[in-house]
Amino acid sequence: MQIYAINGSPRKTWNTATILQNVLDGFAESREDALTEMIDLYSLDYKGCVSCFECKRLGGPSYGRCAVRDGLGALLPRILQADALVIGSPIYFGDVSGMLRAFLERLLFPCLVYDKAHSSLAPRKIPTAFVYTMNLPRAAMEERGYPQRLAAMESYVGRLFGSAPRLLHVCDTLQFKDYSRYKMEIFSAEEKARQRELEFPADCRRARELGAALAADAAGEA
C-alpha cells in the first residue's frame, strides 16, 4: 500500500519534512505492506500549469493527463495511483509555498472536467491530508483566517479525489536554531525554543496518528 508525502518546503530536514515523516511513520506502523516515499518539490525542475489545455482536448493523446514534460512528467501518474497522499507546506504570506501551488495546479487541473457536474478524471479515490507549518501561534492563525483561506484548495482535492482531506496545523514553529544571527525582533528565541521542546513532540505524535488514520482510510476502515 503506497503513500506519498509531498514536501512543499525548501528545507528538507526541518519542520514540514519532520511532520511529514511522522505521518509516513504512522502509516507504516499501521500497515505491514506499507510503501512510503517523501517527495521534495524543491529538488525537482518544473513550473505550474501553462494553460495549454492539452489535458482537455477531446480525442487528444493527453486527455485527462498533463502534457508538459518536465520534472513532474513521470511523477504525476504515479501519485494518481497512490493509496494515500499527504501534502505539506510551510505558510508563506498566508498561503502554501509557490512550489506546492504550482504542483497542485499540475496535479489537479487534468483531473477536473468542465462539465455541469465538475466531474473528476482521477483514476481512483485517494485518501488525502494536508499538514501546514507556520511561525504564527494558533490564535493568530485563526484570527487572520488562514484555515478559511486554505480551504479553497482543500476543497478541490477533496472533490477530485473523493473525500475531504484530513488536516493538521502546526503552529508557533522554531524557524532556526540561532535567532541572534537574524533580524527577528518580533520573536522570542527563548519562547520559540520552549515551544519546540514542549509542543513540537506533541505535533509529531498527532502526525503519526494522522498517518494511522490515512492507513485506515486507505483500507476502507474509517
Rank of each mutant, 00 (worst) to 15 (best):
A215G: 11
L75H: 01
L44I: 13
H118R: 10
D115G: 06
I79H: 06
A218Q: 05
Q195V: 01
D45Q: 13
Q148L: 15
F27H: 08
R78W: 08
S188N: 14
S30Y: 11
Q148W: 05
C171Q: 11
A219S: 13
V23C: 13
E191L: 14
M1H: 04
P123F: 09
E54S: 05
L24D: 11
V23D: 10
S62M: 07
A82P: 03
C49E: 15
A17M: 05
A164D: 15
R194D: 14
E143I: 01
G94M: 14
M134D: 11
T18Q: 15
R196G: 02
R166V: 07
G60R: 07
K12S: 04
K56Y: 03
R57G: 05
L112P: 02
Q21K: 11
W14V: 08
R206Q: 09
C49D: 09
L100C: 06
N22D: 14
Y63N: 03
E54V: 00
M99T: 13
D172N: 15
M99A: 14
R106S: 03
E185I: 13
D115E: 01
G94V: 07
D178M: 06
L76M: 11
E154G: 11
E185S: 14
E32H: 11
G8P: 01
G145Q: 10
L167A: 00
E197C: 02
T128F: 09
S43Y: 00
R159V: 14
G8M: 12
R144L: 14
L76H: 08
G64S: 04
H118N: 07
P90A: 05
A218C: 09
E154W: 11
N22T: 06
E209G: 00
S188R: 02
E185N: 13
M1R: 10
C55F: 00
V131A: 04
I91L: 12
P137V: 06
E221N: 08
F27P: 13
R138M: 02
A34W: 02
I126V: 15
G98N: 06
F53K: 04
L76R: 11
S155G: 06
L72V: 10
K192W: 06
L85A: 02
T133G: 03
E199D: 15
L20D: 07
A74Y: 02
